[in-house]
Amino acid sequence: MPPTLSSLDTWTFFLALFIIFLVASTLRLIAILPSRQFRNNPFRRQPAATRVFIVLGSGGHTHEMFYLLRDLDTRKYTHRTYVVSSGDAFSAQRAAEFEKGLEGRERERERESALGNRKIQSEAKGSIINGVEKKREREAARQNERPPCTGPDHYNITTLHRARAIHQSLLTTPFTSILTLLSSFGPLLAAPPLLPNAPPTTPYEAAAQDLPDLIITNGPATAVIVVLASLILKFFDIRGASSRGKCRTVYVESFARVTSLSLSGRLLVKVVDRFVVQWAELEGRGGRAEFWGVLV
């Protein structure tokens, strides 16, 4: 005779259920958390479009972040999402300025290559065959080369609820942090479409409306919450966050941290994919801090 349903209503049954749940979530955590040492797959084909999620903080962190990103290649990182805390107008302004700078840099580059083209054309007048050949080569090279992705279509600035306002009591901080966590899922899942409710028409728009490929942060409190949100997405493999290898995380400890990790750093050292420090003394902290010289 099979046991009755009421016989399941015992504490041993719930204990067993709880243990199964615990074991399952531990196994899942082990699966999604990064290994001790960073290993990448060098044979991964470069996708046509990628999205980077950049977490900005207060003055100092934002300042350092744009030093880190100074050589950002918009051909590779085609959509940028900048995250600022509510009330931080400075960081939002800096992000817009940075994007303007990227745009200007590309325009300068284009002008220079146009000058080069004209030079080749004038040289080619002497020998027509040679000129045609060269022109065809250039054409082929241009088709192979990815176009720069600058301008307002290729970035967005999103605001998260502030985790802890200055002078906010420590008692209410957990609640506002949960608000920040909840408000971070939307921007992580997708950047807003260019036209409301329009499906993406180019690979760039598709990448922008997908999960970020890379999350970059350097230590503000918001960063801890954004990384936590990305772990939740990976844990449940939401939109393939884990199976498609999305939401890789890079943490860069502030240049101002010479002898000890910051609180954000200590919280994140085990869970981000890469943890980079800028002073040799901090190398190997948490068993995995990498040091590659001063980056800012």
Binding site: N40, L69, K76, D213, D273, W292, G293, L295
Partner: peptide, 28 residues
């Protein structure tokens, strides 16, 4: 001189752009 051309002796240095590419598996 700052930033140092090679910070620390006898060690490999990388730019942050290179670290990003490496994390993504981009090889150019």
């Amino acid at each position: 001189q700052f930033p140092p051309i090679t910070s620390g002796q006898h060690r490999e240095t990388k730019s942050f752009a290179a670290i990003m590419d490496e994390t993504m598996g981009f090889l150019d």
